[in-house]
Amino acid sequence: MKDKTWLRQFVINAIPFATTVVVVIFFQITTGGKLLSTNNIRVLTNQIFSVLLISLAAIFVYAHKNLDISIGGMVGCAMLFGTLAVNATSSILVGFIVILIFCSAIGFTNGVLQKFFKHLPFLPSLCMMFILRAIVTYAGNIQTFKISNEYAVYDNTTLKIVVLIALAFISYYLFDYTKIGKFNKAMGGNQVTAEQSGVNIAKYKILAFLLVGIYSAVASFFLMVRTRSVVAESGNGLEFDVMIALIYGGMPLSGGMKTKFLAAVFGAIIVTVLKNGLIMWGLSTGMVALVKAIIFMLLISVNYTRTKGPLPR
């Protein structure tokens, strides 16, 4: 018996990569080469950075068939508290630690709450989003919180790339070569099976959300030193950018073994290049959002019509 599935598998795996290349080349040509100009690459790096970084951790949550909707609120709030800490102590290190502790605590809480919402797993992070968003909006409406421009030195593209690559490697290994990734994928496949095999469901869910917290902390820090101000809209919609990126990258919303690490990488690149390229074409932000939504809808419909239950044999 010959096994031809590898070829099909290879083609399926190659689709996100091929799409990325096609999208980049397409916009490179239609924008007259402006997309990959030195100046725009810097802009692109900044735009990709947060979405990609958080997506690298969000895959763990998506793998066990869940969503984290609190990301945007968490990042906004972390920037707010980080700014307050930096202004109070004039130490960027303290600011970073505050952000890290805050985001980890939120991620941990999201994970712990999972235990109580077994049938509506996205509910805890939804509540969390409302709370955190409210705090940022409230604070942002009182005044704009700023840190001194001297901290702009930390908004260094080389540093960001180094951090990004390092964290990508960590995430890759955790996802494909440790129990954290393997068990989260198994839980997405069939939680009952995982439980009966002795997987500590609560623990691995907490770890997944905790990772999102930690990666969001790094993203918040770099956003803070780049914008150096916190307004009511800080971090707004980031969770949906992450979701769109993952789905563009080929992540199934049903979780399980088909969740791929590379979905985060390619998805973040595709969604950012698309947004950037469309704006270069002269489309308004509203139009860009509309185009994104249409593509999103198409992908979701493909994603769902393809997965049919097994037929009796």
């Binding site: 496949g189 009952v192 099976t193 997965t307």
Partner: peptide, 8 residues
């Protein structure tokens, strides 16, 4: 439903 992850 319980002993196998069918979609894996």
């Amino acid at each position: 439903k319980e002993s196998l992850i069918l979609n894996d």
